[in-house]
């Protein structure tokens, strides 16, 4: 106990460090919330920190009236739901196949997919392939190409390999086929890791924008929330020091204020959900991190 004084100082320093860490993490987000609820013209003057100075919900009204953003939101919700379900089903089935001890091509199938983690054709050949397959200017470019991911498959495989073989063997004695074993025996035991993978896929789907820009630039009906947000971001960046441009605008909504509101709308679903899903991604990462 002789170290108690040094201990005290250490814990005070630690407390300060953690406090600063939290402030640096949260401040930019809270600041965006404040700006999103502030009169746009007023916000240009600066000096807004954690609370709005001239409160308004006008920015949010504008965002909800913007047809492209609403369309983007619909597409994003659709791709997140469909993409997560199909990707989970595909990865789970593949992981099930390569984790069967007696499967004839167990090693070959694993290798076939692990290679895809390290080698790929690159942006241009993939772009041309999608064009040939009719996946450009199509909703399905969000779903089909990324359906199987070797990383997620490996996370699932590792988990499935931890399930005792005796369960499978006794089911086989009862005459169950592989589909029954997959659907009725293995899958119910894998629900935690299914949740993990679903979370990874869903976050990826929700946040991706590059595919919308690259493959569906010409098809406004397939725009996504993040891509629309990106367009708003470039408007803001291309007119920095925007006092003049703001003066010219007819309403009190500025590109910065509308972008802030759109940012909050976009992040809200994930921010509300992730604290409750912590144990799923923590286990998923620890499984995935140590394996291949």
């Amino acid at each position: 106990m002789k170290q108690s004084k040094g201990d005290k100082i250490f814990h005070i320093c630690l407390g300060i460090f953690m406090f600063l860490f939290v402030v640096i993490t949260l401040y930019p987000v809270l600041n965006t919330v404040a700006i999103s609820f502030n009169n746009g013209l007023d916000a240009v003057k600066g000096g807004i920190h954690l609370l709005p100075r001239k409160f308004t919900v006008e920015n949010y009204q504008k965002v909800l009236q913007k047809q492209s953003l609403v369309q983007g939101a619909l597409v994003t919700v659709a791709r997140t739901i469909i993409g997560t379900l199909t990707s989970l089903a595909a990865n789970a089935l593949l992981a099930f196949i390569v984790s069967r001890k007696r499967f004839l091509f167990k090693r070959g199938m694993s290798l076939f997919w692990v290679i895809t983690m390290y080698v790929n054709g690159g942006m241009i050949p993939i772009f041309l392939l999608f064009k040939t397959l009719g996946l450009t200017n199509s909703f399905w470019v969000y779903i089909i190409p990324g359906m199987v991911s070797a990383f997620n498959m490996l996370v699932l495989r590792t988990y499935m390999e931890g399930i005792p073989d005796s369960l499978e063997e006794s089911a086989q004695l009862d005459g169950a086929g592989y589909f029954t074993i997959f659907a009725k025996i293995i899958s119910p035991l894998c629900l935690p890791v299914y949740a993990t993978v679903a979370l990874f896929v869903a976050v990826g789907q929700w946040n991706s924008w590059f595919d919308a820009m690259l493959y569906n630039r010409m098809s406004e009906q397939y725009t996504t929330l993040q891509y629309e947000l990106m367009k708003l971001l470039s408007t803001v960046m291309n007119q920095t020091g925007s006092v003049d441009s703001a003066k010219n605008a007819a309403s009190s909504v500025t590109p910065v204020s509308i972008r802030s509101a759109a940012t909050i709308v976009t992040m809200l679903p994930i921010v509300c959900l992730y604290p409750f899903l912590q144990r799923y991604f923590v286990t998923g990462l620890t499984i995935g991190g140590v394996k291949e």
Partner: peptide, 15 residues
């Protein structure tokens, strides 16, 4: 981690 790069670069740009 759960925010997209669009959002992160946006708020960084503001800051």
């Amino acid at each position: 981690h759960f925010l997209s790069w669009i959002i992160v670069t946006g708020i960084l740009h503001d800051a």
